[in-house]
Simulated assay, not measured.
Amino acid sequence: MTREEFIKNTDELLRLVRTEYELTQESMALCLGISKKTLVGIEKGRGSLGWTGAVALCSLFSQSSILQNTFGGDMQDILSALAFERVQPKYPKTMGGRVWWEEVQQGIGWHIQQNYISRHYRLLTDDDRHVCSSFDLEKVKLAAAEYERVNAK
């Protein structure tokens, strides 16, 4: 999934999320920091939240079952995968991915998982610390090889 696909999906889900939370267009616009006119345009397919608005929607409404079922669980994880596509931060420990994740590959001290819904990958250490995320499996495999090389004892 690219940022553009993600933005398109969030644009299409905006009205459903607003309805799920029982918000008026005016209330939702206030939450997202946009005008009601802009929100109406997005809901009618004549505008877009853009990257910042899509991130705001998914962050503020991260408990939305509509968003979770569309993107595969934890909204923060997919936002991180897209936001840090070209940057490598230090991630905190995860819960290990018991619901939304399939084990893809294991190595010495690490394992790669793929999200069932969004199909993005993540590299975790054996104690479930997040090392990187990407939609490119080869990029995650390279990070795994580097992690194994650096942490070999």
Rank of each mutant, 00 (worst) to 15 (best):
R15I: 15
R15H: 09
R15T: 15
L16N: 11
V17E: 05
R18C: 10
T19G: 04
E20K: 05
Y21T: 10
E22V: 12
E22D: 11
E22F: 11
E22T: 11
L23I: 14
L23K: 12
T24I: 07
T24W: 00
T24K: 02
T24V: 07
Q25V: 12
E26I: 10
A29T: 14
L30S: 13
L30W: 08
L30V: 15
C31L: 08
G33V: 15
G33N: 09
I34R: 03
S35Q: 11
K37R: 14
K37P: 02
T38V: 15
G41W: 07
G41E: 13
G41A: 13
G41H: 10
E43F: 03
G45I: 02
G45Y: 08
R46T: 08
R46H: 14
G47L: 07
G47H: 03
G47W: 07
S48K: 04
S48H: 10
S48I: 15
L49T: 14
G50Y: 04
G50A: 10
W51S: 07
W51N: 03
A54W: 02
A54G: 05
A54D: 02
V55H: 00
V55T: 09
A56S: 08
S62M: 07
S62L: 01
Q63L: 09
Q63H: 06
S64L: 12
S64P: 01
S64D: 04
I66F: 05
I66K: 04
L67Y: 05
L67F: 04
L67I: 09
N69K: 10
N69H: 10
T70A: 06
T70H: 09
F71P: 00
F71V: 04
F71R: 02
G72Q: 00
G73K: 01
D74Q: 06
M75L: 13
Q76C: 09
Q76R: 06
I78W: 02
L79P: 00
S80N: 08
S80F: 14
A81K: 02
L82P: 00
F84K: 01
F84V: 03
E85C: 01
E85K: 06
R86P: 00
R86K: 11
R86W: 05
R86S: 02
V87T: 13
V87Q: 09
V87C: 06
V87H: 05
Q88V: 13
P89L: 06
K90S: 13
Y91N: 01
Y91F: 15
Y91C: 09
P92Q: 01
K93A: 07
K93P: 01
K93G: 03
T94C: 07
M95D: 15
M95N: 14
M95V: 12
G96T: 06
G96F: 03
G96C: 03
